[in-house]
Write a protein that binds this DNA or RNA. Structure first.
Lengths: 116, 116
DNA sequence: CCGTATCCTGGTGGATACTG
DNA sequence: CAGTATCCACCAGGATACGG
């Protein structure tokens, strides 16, 4: 999962627990992950759609971010065996439970941004 | 503020807005920031206390993370002119508005961690 | 006690070319 | 259309030594 190592991943003896807040932070730490999750929370999207929604991202990076989110059970990847290929990304049930977090983060961000 | 560049920081013409969720993510993107905020949400702490609470962090890094949080108006730094020096860190009023976000992130993380 | 000042390094993001 | 496969650059994180 996460790219950052976090609290407790190499625990200093006896202190085996991992901070859940840090855990959450880490799941979404990729450069584009949060915004990807946000778009997928609105609707299922195809690969190219996502790329268009994320101006500046390259295919390689988009693929990597999506694969990591998949690995973390946040995003589901549905491949249709057609020509030309069609792949749809959506939130998993577990990914959907993250929507409230997304919402509150967005709400807070909106307010905090305004205060300059 | 944030270390990552994010959506809209170099907007591709006309699209000037920044995604609030990404904004929030970015504010807390530092390796130790979330856990620092979490500790300070519980109580005011001195520099050394924080260092002890964050096993493995070096003074230099701790200083940097705190300075960035200060810059972002999340953390207040109170210097007592004594010998030996005493510095206390606490959440600003704005920082305190972040506590609900912290809470929901923690709640979600706790559940998600359990499911393997 | 609470920091700076340096220097180093690994990982993440990115660019580009190629493919089933 | 939806990806691999490479290679590169940058910078946050970290270690260490020194300072008021």
């Amino acid at each position: 999962m996460a790219r950052y190592k976090f609290q407790g991943e190499t625990p200093p003896e006896g202190q085996e627990e991992v901070c859940p807040v840090t855990y959450t932070q880490n799941l979404t730490a990729g450069r584009w992950k949060i915004i990807i999750l946000w778009h997928l929370s609105k609707q299922t999207r195809r690969f190219n759609e996502l790329q268009r929604l994320l101006p500046g991202i390259s295919k390689g990076i988009l693929t990597r971010q999506l694969r990591e989110l998949e690995e973390d059970k946040m995003v589901h990847r549905e491949v249709y065996k057609e020509v030309p290929p069609k792949v749809e990304y959506s939130l998993t049930p577990e990914g959907k439970t993250f929507i409230p977090v997304l919402d509150i983060m967005g709400e807070w961000g909106k307010k905090h941004m305004q205060r300059k």
